[in-house]
Nucleic acid binder design. Structure first.
Length: 961
RNA sequence: GGGCACGUGGCGGAACUGGUAGACGCGCGGGACUUAGGAUCCCGUGCCGCAAGGCGUGAGGGUUCGAGUCCCUCCGUGCCCA
């Protein structure tokens, strides 16, 4: 019988067995509409069912859904579906993280309003998301740039402000002195740190900004005991938060009386402080530097402002600094000590000022040696008998940072310092108590974690709901006046100023003081967009409007917390930390409860671009510099290098220079040049590219370019060599899901994304591999169609039935286990394997009851992975009750899943010598007997007695000679 | 410089608590069916060897009856932090 290409509508039952081809775009939109219409993905509170809140990170609406979005969301969807089939009431919502910079940049560059740009993108991405066939409950969608959403950002902020968790403080920002504006971090370009627009070196400048007190939760955030999160993420957070350093805050004063607070872990060395060091951007410098030193201070500040924090604090770097001409008074002994500035002190770290004790701190020691500052030991180490060993500053080669006894320390002289670290050192504690009694210092601690700076000098974000009045200072906007909405009239100007357009708006910022009713101005900065994603998991818990409440209390009580959260690990120290902080802050303010917002976290890997070879070309032309540069007369693509590489080596051809022509692979190309690599790349011979010889070929306007199949091609169409790299538009290695879905259908793309790599690992995309998955699904499609037409039969061979049921139930067991554990690739592999087994058994069993069971189980297992095909085959082809997605996950028949026999491995001295099939219930004696009798063993035993015989039930017998 | 991962065929990857290395798929080789095929189906495919057999999880060492898996040293790659 020939192949029958009847279109599906004309598919006549009972004829043409393999007739109906699998055409995904005929079934996928159909089911998507039906599911939508029937609301089968709606998740509603149902106290009679166990709940499962599955959440996957919502996308930024950048324009188009990337393959990375699919990679993150599709397996999450498959697992949510799996959980639903297992009897859970599953909530799987979706929304858009819609505030952010790209929208504003589009406004600046193209004059399109960020709101218009964003909502257009959302519209497009909604459609694309639907094409995935995921079970999102769209009724709960949230869009963070919607005033109904961001009013709650403002509400939370005000609550935190009222609870002392939000405060305002001076902090440095990057500043372009030429454009006279602040710059976002991404606007500062390269190692030279220049302004992206004018190329002027960027400096740091202080600005009043809002902070959230995440450090108040540092200790609790380091407790991960309630979380089932990847070790990698936990480690990153732990390291990010850092250890608590315990010490004291001590207030020094300048000669003029300005307070300078410092933090130290070694208050016991206070009497050895011989100078102070301030960060170059410390605001006090504007007041205390005398005229005589102004110039050198300014110069130094200017230089320091250009370095990154990492460069400034690198340990190996030599410390630099200058004297400010000002002096401070050491509060413990009234001594006058010089104030220096040095770039290794950061404004963002601690208070931006340190006391320097060169005798007992290595960095201070090096600094003092370099600039000839006094080194005064105030801790002497002790010898074995407990007698102090005096330190002589003249002969010290490094700071003494260890324990000992305090000397030259006024009333505390003689105090023992045991550990030289932390509050459990009684000596240090004694010093702190003394400082507290004197009113010059107090216990304090610090973490590596800094408070969360949320101010952004940008338009497209949540306005910070604070108002400043000359008389009353900063006050929150009254809650009944929320939301403070962004103005979007014609007065908003999209100037690339780096400051929020809100500042320049003629009327927006002017308001009245909520306290005195007098004139006041609004905060014109907006919030960091990470605020938006810090509580969106709560916002999904509503069916109506967010107008009255941030989430529905009943919904909250049922659904919260998130059971499974999926997304990228790159958010480890940002979003994933902020969301935990937010939860804890909200909990302490009485809005939510429980230790953590997201119990289980799983992170997908990254889909990298496909490695690809460059075109193989023959270039004819004239050498301009033999043998490294030539001008091309003619460039001809000869064969894909992929093919070349498979040729035997002797056919590869060699580098030819004598006749003005070269043959090689394109490694790079731009408008004027093509780089051709003339020694063929031979990875299979260990060639890592070290013998590469590149010829730079200049392309002239009149150069002929011949690419087979492309008549009018120019040299810009030559493809060039690309290894495994992140996908990026400029490298042309971006895989777009749209065309893939058009070609293969969403189910195939879904299945391939689950199959091609371990989900948590990711890896390079391989466009050929998808064919294998497509073939598998087509085979399933054909098999089920064939089965539907097959005549019934009762003559099943019991042995074959046993085999079939073994395959079905052992696969079911594996797939269940794998989906549970996010091992999507092996789940798909198991289904492929079962498909192969079904293919082998079909002639014996198709049409029997056992066969029906097999297909039934198969389609249920397929449903989470290829939802459209499973539905079509289940409902339409087999005529089972709609919908397959509302069916229960099948139960494993443990009896059937057990193989009747297994392969017993027989080893001699740990090396495999034979394998025999034995029944599963074989006894130890029997197994050992069979092993010892085996000829392969006898031959090696050669009459000797085995020293030992090891038996591992169900596995092997190892005979030790 | 520190921390954390990882290193398996030509390729992507399997291998649960140490127990048959290479499941599944790609690619490749052969065959069938076709006017033809890049469609479909079947067979083969870690390496060496005609075979018996030997060798194989980055390199070297160790623990063990037995190591891809555990321990040590080194090399390489990736990510995070400084």
């Amino acid at each position: 019988m020939g192949r029958c290409f009847a279109p599906s509508q004309a598919y006549p039952p009972g004829r043409c067995l393999m007739a109906r081809p699998y055409i995904p775009h005929e079934i996928e939109p159909k089911w998507q509409e039906r599911w939508e219409k029937d609301g089968i993905h709606h998740a509603d509170v149902d106290p009679n069912k166990p709940k499962h809140y599955a959440l996957t990170m919502f996308p930024y609406p950048s324009g188009d859904l990337h393959i990375g979005h699919w990679y993150a969301m599709v397996p999450s969807d498959a697992r949510a579906r799996f959980m639903r089939m297992r009897g859970y009431n599953v909530l799987f919502p979706m929304g858009f993280d819609a505030f952010g910079l790209p929208a504003e940049n589009a406004a600046i560059r193209r004059g399109i309003h960020p709101k218009v740009w964003t909502y257009q993108n959302i519209e497009r991405m909604r459609k694309q998301l639907r094409s995935m066939g995921a079970m999102f409950d769209w009724r709960r969608e949230v869009v963070t740039c919607d005033p109904e959403y961001y009013r709650w950002n403002q509400y939370w902020f005000i609550q935190m402000y009222k609870h002392g968790l939000a405060y305002r403080k001076l902090a440095p920002v990057d500043w372009c002195p030429r454009c006279n504006t602040t710059l976002a971090r991404e606007q500062v370009i390269g190692e030279e740190r220049v302004c992206e627009r004018c190329g002027t070196p960027v400096i740091k400048r202080n600005l009043e900004q809002w902070f959230l007190k995440i450090t108040a939760y540092a200790e609790e955030l380091k407790d991960f005991s309630h979380l089932d999160w990847p070790e990698k993420v936990i480690n990153a957070q732990r390291q990010w938060i850092g250890d608590r350093s315990e010490g004291a805050n001590v207030v020094f004063r300048t000669e003029q009386g300005h307070p300078i607070e410092i933090f130290t872990t070694r208050p016991d060395t206070l009497w050895g402080a011989t100078f102070m060091v301030l960060a170059p951007e410390h605001p006090l410098l504007d007041e205390i530097v005398p005229e005589s030193h102004q110039k050198q201070v300014d110069e130094y500040r200017h230089r320091a402002a250009r370095l990154s924090d990492i460069e400034r604090t690198a340990e190996e770097r030599e410390k630099t600094g200058v004297f400010t001409g000002a002096y401070a008074i050491n509060p413990v002994n009234g001594e006058r000590i010089p104030i220096w500035i040095a770039d290794y002190v950061l404004m963002t770290y601690g208070t931006g000022a340190i006391m320097a004790v060169p005798a007992h701190d290595q960095r201070d020691f090096e600094f003092a040696k370099k600039y000839g500052l006094e080194i005064r030991p105030v801790i002497f180490p002790l010898d074995e008998d407990g007698n102090p060993i005096p330190l002589d500053p003249a002969t010290m080669t490094e700071a003494y940072e260890g324990p000992g006894v305090m000397v030259n320390s006024g009333p505390l002289t003689g105090t023992r310092i045991v550990k030289a670290k932390g509050w459990d050192d009684p000596g240090i504690m004694k010093v702190i108590e003394w400082l507290e009694a004197q009113g010059i210092g107090e216990r304090a601690y610090q973490y590596r974690l800094r408070d969360w700076l949320i101010s952004r000098q940008r338009y497209w974000g949540t306005p910070i709901p604070m108002v400043y009045c000359e008389k009353c200072g900063w006050n929150p906007v009254p809650e009944d006046q929320l939301p403070v909405t962004l103005p979007d009239d014609e007065h908003v100007q999209w100037k690339p100023t780096g400051e929020s357009p809100l500042t320049y708006h003629p009327t927006w910022k002017h308001t009245t003081c909520p306290v005195c009713g007098g004139p006041a101005v609004r905060e014109t900065d907006t919030m960091d967009t990470f605020i938006d994603s810090s509580w969106y998991h709560l916002a999904y818990l509503q069916l109506g409007t967010l107008e009255k409440e941030p989430f529905d209390k009943k919904e909250y009580e049922y659904w919260f917390p998130v059971d499974t959260y999926t997304g990228g690990a790159e958010h480890a120290t940002m979003h994933l930390l902020y969301v935990r902080f937010f939860h804890k802050a909200l909990r302490d303010m009485g809005f939510v409860d429980g230790p953590e917002p997201m119990i289980q976290l799983r992170c997908q890997g990254v889909v990298l671009g496909e490695p690809r070879p460059g075109d193989f070309v023959v270039v004819e032309g004239e050498w301009t510099q033999k043998p490294t540069a030539m001008t091309a007369r003619r460039i001809r693509v000869v064969r894909a290098s992929q093919e070349i590489r498979h040729l035997p080596r002797e056919q590869w051809g060699e580098f030819r220079v004598e006749d003005g022509a070269i043959w090689g692979e394109v490694y790079f190309r731009d408008e004027h040049l093509v780089h051709v690599r003339v020694n063929p790349y031979r990875p299979d011979e260990g060639d890592k590219g070290e013998h590469a010889q590149l010829v730079v070929v200049t392309v002239m306007p009149e150069t002929q370019v011949e690419i087979p199949g492309k008549p009018d091609a120019g040299h810009m169409e030559l493809t060039y060599h690309l290894g495994v790299e992140k996908m990026s538009k400029s490298k042309f290695n971006v895989v777009e899901p749209g065309p893939l879905v058009d070609q293969y259908g969403a189910d195939t793309v879904r299945a391939y994304l689950m199959f091609f790599a371990r989900w948590e690992k990711g890896g390079p995309w391989d466009s050929r591999g998808i064919e294998g998955v497509a073939r598998w699904l087509r085979r399933v499609w054909n098999l089920v169609h064939e089965s539907a037409e097959a005549p019934r039969r009762e003559d099943a061979d019991p042995d074959k039935v046993r085999q079939l049921r073994y395959h079905v139930h052992s696969t079911l067991k594996k797939v269940t286990h794998d989906l549970e554990n996010f091992d999507f690739n092996t789940a798909v592999a198991a289904l492929m394997e079962l498909m192969n087994a079904l293919g082998n058994l079909k002639k014996d069993l198709m049409g029997t009851a056992a066969w029906d069971e097999a297909l039934d189980v198969y389609l249920r297992m397929l449903a989470p992975i290829a939802p459209h095909m499973a539905e079509e085959l289940w409902t339409e082809v087999l005529g089972k009750p709609y919908s397959v997605h509302q069916q229960a996950w099948p139960e494993v028949d443990e009896e059937a899943a057990r193989a009747p026999e297994f392969t017993l491995v027989i080893q001699v001295n740990g090396k495999v010598r034979a394998r025999i099939q034995v029944p599963v219930d074989i006894t130890e004696e029997e197994a050992k007997r069979l092993a010892l009798e085996h000829p392969a063993v006898q031959r090696r035993l050669d009459g000797r007695e085995p020293k030992r015989v090891i038996y591992v039930p169900g596995k092997l017998v190892n005979i030790v000679v």
